[in-house]
Design a protein around this nucleic acid. Structure first.
Lengths: 189, 189
DNA sequence: GGTCGACTTGGGCAACTGTCCAAACCCTAC
DNA sequence: GTAGGGTTTGGACAGTTGCCCAAGTCGACC
């Protein structure tokens, strides 16, 4: 078998995915071109359409790979926090590394928007977010939250994304300063 | 003077702006082309570059015009609410008309993203948001909020945007269901 | 050695892009 | 009527796009 070739192909495919992940934040979802990705990945333009049916396919695969890793990491870390207050503080601390203008934030936002025009992407992204919210909700109840944990988890997740969004326009916005009202939300629940 | 011509020019310009506002949500900020806008506005392609230096210039002007009207309207309505609880309930009610996938939500999100690549747009959008936040903060203090009104207003504004963002992926997410934790947030302040 | 399959190359294609511009147009002022 | 401003037209331009493909490389097997 040509296992050597297949292995090389897999690493090339991964390089294309990585290149897409770095390019989307730079030039926007719709601004990524075949030749751009190929150049950044260090391969010939034709390779892109050998490994992916279209540029959009490549972007979808790259984006979903990124969010999977991100959300899985967040969920795992959150589960390890001993209490709700600690968890929120930790989340806000994490958030400080997402300025809203950093590559990760931009990629996620670009995916949100692209998903409104790509049903398949919307479907798969929705499943990921739903799973994350479920984890947060069960974590809240497990640590004594008495209100509607589903609603609280939804609001928490939405607030986090909203904060990132606003930080993009107001770099002076400090997530830590929002801890008080955010903790109040769950203390009262 | 050719006042008749000038007037016709102004309405054409406005038609181009309106066309851009409807197109950005449909095809994305970077997906709007000269001919697309011209066709939707019912004019020849050349007109676009007579009224605007570039397509980007047109999009910036159209987007900022839209957000100005939106934020001014929101601020005015909010100021008329008698109390914090009523204000939040009203805001959440308003929010139900922004599904996250509706043209208005999409346009605003597209502007957020485009602003990361267009310093001028970011600057002017930031000023608008800052102004809105200041209005909300003073409204909060005027109605008895005792905590850090600036932080609370920032979190409130961010939460609202975040909710819209999440509704795009989860249409079943009901803003009204988030009223309890959101009110708790400000009741405790 | 030769054969085979997976992968890669670089150029070719039609379609589309933003921008420009000479010419035509409409309306007002003389 | 003529002149002239502001506006509109539709085509031209060079550059870029996504996608395709014949030819090539490479290593594994016989």
């Amino acid at each position: 078998m040509a296992t050597r070739s297949a292995e090389r192909g897999r690493t090339t495919r991964q390089r294309l995915l990585d290149a897409a992940v770095t390019l989307v934040p730079e030039v926007g979802w719709g601004g990524v071109t075949t030749r751009m990705v190929a150049e950044r990945a260090g391969v010939a333009p034709g390779v892109v359409h050998y490994h992916f049916a279209s540029v959009t396919d490549l972007l979808v695969a790259a984006g979903l790979g990124f969010t999977t890793a991100l959300l899985d990491g967040l969920a795992a870390e959150l589960a390890a926090r001993p209490g709700i207050g600690e968890g929120i503080d930790w989340l806000l601390g994490e958030l400080s590394q997402y300025s809203g203008a950093d590559p990760a934030s931009l990629l996620v936002m670009e995916m949100f928007l692209a998903s409104t025009r790509l049903p398949e992407l919307r479907e798969r992204l929705g499943v990921q977010i739903g799973g994350f919210r479920a984890v947060v909700a069960s974590w809240l109840t497990a640590h004594g939250y008495r209100g509607d944990a589903e609603a609280a988890a939804a609001l928490l997740a939405a607030s986090l994304d909203g904060i990132v969004l606003h930080r993009a326009l107001d770099p002076g916005l400090d997530p830590a300063a929002l801890a008080a009202p955010l903790r109040a939300m769950f203390a009262a629940g």
